[in-house]
């Protein structure tokens, strides 16, 4: 296997959790809710996903547990921000603090334990094709699933009536409410969907990336996923490009560390975070030309008049 092929395989593997979590957050934000708790939901997804797979030996059960953990966390967030009109930034931070703590509590029992990783696809002939075989036909189900998810989200947002309503709720909740759409109900579903995706993205880490659980294993991926949504200008297509770009930065810095150019390893490890900042600056500057604006009601509290 050539180096380039190995790098591309590693990039796909590293990008998938980002893509899953960011795709969910994109839908949440399109409905006008800013959930900063992605990191907390992801790490809970990782802990519960690992626990599920560990006790049953089934990665599918593990993935379901991860999704449920994300949904559970986001339900708390939805209840606070939509039910009690709490500030979304503060509630999202609370969700992250809680998730990091809870995952440590759950994960304390699994120190040093391992599980079997998700199997990779193997098709006769096709997977054996030189170079493209492993890349196109040799991934695990979640890698394909994440791409299917983004296509599904694109179709939903731009080709269905429900997607149009969801975008309307995010752009102008007062008008959507006046037209008779149940703003808070739609937002609740969007938040729960975001939680499910973040939970699955988190579960991907112990199930498919590294077959064990360590506390804090998401290492800021939830926050990078949030930045990716901004990078993608809230458009699903650009999300895929952004996620793979970030995966590439992560993997390239690892290879650069391995090659050892005399650059401090800490600088290399900091690259994805520095790249995130750079991207946020560039995208925010060019908003209106290449970037589209954020959903107009993003992060605003809505309490319907009765």
């Amino acid at each position: 296997m050539g180096l380039l092929e190995a790098i591309i395989l590693a990039v796909l593997a590293a990008s998938t959790p980002l893509l899953l979590a960011a795709a969910g957050e994109l839908v949440t934000e399109r409905a006008g809710v800013l959930n900063l708790g992605v990191e907390g939901m992801m790490i809970m997804g990782a802990a519960c996903g690992f626990a599920g797979a560990y006790f049953t030996g089934s990665t599918i059960v593990g993935a379901v547990c991860g999704i449920l953990a994300g949904v559970g966390m986001s339900a708390v967030f939805a209840w606070l921000t939509l039910g009690l009109a709490v500030n979304q930034v503060a509630a999202g931070l609370a969700l992250t603090i809680l998730g990091v703590g809870m995952s440590g509590l759950i994960g304390a029992g699994f120190v040093g334990e391992r599980i079997t990783a998700v199997p990779q696809l193997w098709l006769p002939v096709l997977t054996d094709l030189p170079f493209v075989g492993r890349i196109l036909f040799g991934q695990n189900a979640l890698v394909y699933g994440s791409i299917a998810l983004v296509i599904g989200i694109w179709y939903f947002l731009y080709r269905t009536r429900a997607g149009l309503v969801l975008r309307a709720v995010g752009d102008n909740h007062a008008s959507a409410h006046a037209l008779g759409y149940p703003v808070l109900t739609i937002r609740t579903f969007a938040v729960l969907f975001g939680g499910a995706c973040a939970g699955l993205g988190g579960a991907y880490l112990p199930l498919a990336y590294t077959p064990f659980f360590i506390s804090g294993m998401t290492a800021g991926r939830g926050w990078i996923a949030l930045a990716l949504v901004v990078f993608a200008s809230w458009m699903p297509g650009r999300l895929v490009a952004g996620a793979y770009l970030f995966g590439a930065v992560t993997i390239l810095q690892l290879h650069a560390q391995g090659a050892g150019f005399g650059i401090p390893s800490q600088l290399m490890t900091a690259l994805p975070y520095l790249a995130t900042i750079l991207v946020l600056i560039v995208i925010s500057r060019t908003r209106g030309t290449i970037g589209s604006a954020a959903p107009a009601s993003l992060g605003l509290v809505f309490v319907p008049d009765r």
Binding site: A90, I97, V100, G101, L105
Partner: peptide, 12 residues
């Protein structure tokens, strides 16, 4: 980690 859980719940 129970301390962090406690702090998170408190903020909620």
């Amino acid at each position: 980690d129970l301390t962090k859980v406690f702090q998170g719940i408190l903020l909620f």
